[in-house]
Design a protein around this nucleic acid. Structure first.
Length: 467
RNA sequence: GCUCCCUUCGUCUAGCGGUCCAGGACGUCGCCCUCUCAAGGCGAAAACACGAGUUCGAUUCUCGUAGGGAGCGCCA
């Protein structure tokens, strides 16, 4: 049997960071073992599932490059199959109909709690052998073994043993005829030939019940790997205010998919001291058995650092379209300004995200919006600033080599001729071109503005310096 | 309440009984470089939750305690 994993989100929201990492680990494990990765949408919750959420999950997977070999499959399209398996279990005496109302069940739980026990179903209908009857409360329950225990070797948590006495007879088919989660996953995982179930560790408690269903169906039990949770920066459960936004939000915030993947793969897994992993390295080195057992916190500072590593090392030409996308989001026209690839080179050492990069690049695609008056006072109205600017204007107007190197050489000449330090030249020019005293190297700042625009801005700055 | 899981620097982690007065990375701090801001280089501070036990020897194994988390649904 070949190696098969699956990612099985329920479409009740976007693909968030925890889901993305689960998907990544499933995908990596499948690729590493040369197996298949299957995508299955668990949409049996009719109340909460939406088409938008399905699309958001698909978009997120696509953006991250986590391509499934099969699917997406939808549980709602497999209803006949669940019904057939339910019947099979019923016929085999492994399941039975029960008729308690929700109120009765609630009272049952409350009573159990009061007695210091787990709030479980008491199995009232288990051995009554009542003939089937139509009833709005009718549910099919699993006849869980009452003796012995369930043992499984979790690939990340290790050996876990569970007394059957702790388990109750869970609902397999709801009163509306839809299968419950615990039933549908087992049927699906069997039918789809899943050999390794990789999922969040909030599911370890479900595993023994599911294993019992596998046994009841005489199906081979897959191996399990339960991943620790990802917490927010404050150690609390991830919420919308920190990481629990959809992965597509990370694109809008200027992160690269590869950087996010790299960050995620290191959250709970490592390979010696290595921090940067290409996709190929991840596939080659990843092993689900090496995953950590404890929860980890999401750290935006490290994500930012990683993102910058990719910004600095990726081909600027490859990054250019993505930067253009961000420029457009700011209402700027990438064609009315410098080549985005050159902007990447000028700014990649100074920002951590493409969003920041686009914001900083504004100065080359639109007129100066706001002047930093302190900068104007300090550098433009400084002693000799106007003379320096006039000299620079003349030099740039006749400069034959309009390139960062050419501009740099021109400024050095200026420095020698006027007998002033670089700072006395670069800062007034910087304020003239950008309106602020912070920007990339002065030669790049000027070069990217383009000669005409640079001269125009210097002219204007000379005016202001006399004001 | 019950069951299960987890516990190394602020954070992510290395460590699979001696190699550890615990290594790397992010972050923080300092110095250098420098036209600003960064980037980069160098350096510093910073952790084995606690208590027993096993052992010649525990960060590493076992058991408790404490703390954290998950689940106990006709939600997944």
């Amino acid at each position: 049997m070949t190696f098969r994993t699956r990612f099985a989100p329920s479409p009740t929201g976007y693909l968030h960071i925890g889901g993305a990492r689960t998907a990544l680990y499933c995908w990596l494990e499948a690729r590493h073992r040369g197996g298949q990765f299957i995508l299955r949408v668990e949409d049996t919750d009719r109340e909460r599932s939406t088409d938008e959420a399905v699309q958001a999950i698909l978009d997120g997977m696509d953006w991250l490059g986590l391509d499934p070999d099969e699917g997406p499959f939808f549980q709602t399209q497999r209803m006949d199959r669940y019904r057939a398996v339910a019947q099979q279990l019923l016929d085999a005496g492994k399941a039975y109909w029960a008729y308690e109302s929700k109120e009765e069940l609630e009272a049952m739980r409350a009573a159990a709690m009061a007695a210091g026990e787990k709030p479980r179903y008491n199995g009232a209908y288990r051995d009554r052998n009542e003939p089937y009857r139509e009833d709005p409360n009718r549910v099919l329950r699993f006849r869980n073994p009452r003796e012995g225990s369930v043992v499984f070797d979790d690939k990340v948590k290790g050996r876990i043993e569970w007394d059957n006495a702790e388990l109750d007879d869970l609902v397999l088919v709801r009163s509306d005829g839809f299968p419950t989660y615990n039933f549908a996953v087992v049927v699906d995982d069997i039918d789809m030939g899943i050999t390794e179930v990789i999922r969040g560790d909030d599911h370890v408690n479900n595993t023994p019940r599911q294993i019992n269903i596998y046994h009841a169906l005489n199906a081979p039990v897959p191996s399990f790997a339960h991943l620790p949770m990802i917490l927010g920066p404050d150690g609390q459960k991830l919420s919308k205010r920190h990481g629990a936004v959809g992965v597509m939000q990370y694109r809008e915030d200027g992160y690269l998919p590869h950087a996010l993947l790299n960050y995620l793969v290191r959250l709970g897994w490592s390979h010696g001291d290595q921090e940067i992993f290409s996709i190929g390295e991840m596939i080659g080195l990843f092993d689900i058995a090496d995953v950590n057992q404890s929860a980890s916190r999401f750290d935006f500072a490290k994500l930012g650092w990683l993102n910058q590593q990719y910004l600095k090392n990726d081909d600027p030409k490859g990054l250019a379209p993505e930067l253009a996308w961000h420029l457009q989001r700011l209402g700027l026209d990438p064609s009315r300004g410098p080549d985005p690839a050159e902007v990447v080179v000028a700014l990649r050492d100074r920002v951590q995200t493409l969003k920041e990069m686009a914001e900083r690049a504004k100065i080359w695609y639109a007129p100066i919006e706001q002047w930093d008056e302190k900068a104007v006072a300090k550098h433009l109205r400084a002693e000799g600033a106007a003379d320096v600017l006039r000299a620079a204007h003349a030099k740039f107007a006749s400069l034959s080599d309009w390139s960062p190197a050419g501009i740099h050489a021109a400024i050095e000449q200026l420095s020698a001729e006027c007998n002033v330090g670089m700072g006395k030249i670069a800062q007034p020019l910087r304020v003239a071109i950008t309106g602020t005293q912070v920007s990339p190297s002065i030669e790049h700042t000027i070069y990217l503005a383009g000669r005409d625009e640079a001269l125009r801005r210097i002219d204007y700055a000379i005016e202001r310096s006399n004001a």
